[in-house]
């Protein structure tokens, strides 16, 4: 693919140029910024992903989107039937979203 070539080439030129003009080739290894105090521990920790329920609802929808792209191309041929089916399916998913909302999934902290 030509464009990929162009893109990679441009990035290589950028990084190459930088390495040519950079003030020093040593990569500075330092502590993470902590407002001027020493770091107590590494930051990569098990992060409390409080929106994981949103992620699950999202995955449900995202699967559905995979069907929707081909559906787009056949709407005209298949007519009302496919529209009704698709939006009935979406209505079920929206019902799930409303339920999730009532359970407070979209509010966190």
């Amino acid at each position: 693919m030509v464009l990929l070539g162009v893109a990679v080439l441009l990035l290589l030129v950028l990084y190459g140029l930088s390495s040519g003009v950079r003030i020093s080739h040593r990569v500075l290894c330092r502590e993470a910024f902590m407002s001027g105090l020493p770091v107590r521990e590494h930051a990569v920790s098990r992060f409390h992903v409080r929106w994981y329920l949103i992620a699950i609802v999202f995955v449900v929808f995202d699967m559905e989107m995979v069907f929707m792209y081909p559906w787009v191309l056949v709407v005209r041929e298949t007519g009302a039937g496919s529209v009704v089916e698709m939006f009935a399916f979406l209505a079920v998913l929206v019902a799930a979203v409303i339920y999730a909302w009532r359970e407070g999934v979209f509010r966190w902290t």
Partner: peptide, 28 residues
């Protein structure tokens, strides 16, 4: 770097999660 990983502690939801110490200030 001799820096330890975060330790776990229980949180308000009863989960055991990493506790990260972060300082705000003096230079922020």
């Amino acid at each position: 770097g001799g820096i330890p990983m975060a330790d776990r502690g229980s949180d308000r939801d009863g989960l055991k999660l990493d506790r990260l110490h972060v300082a705000l200030g003096p230079a922020l």
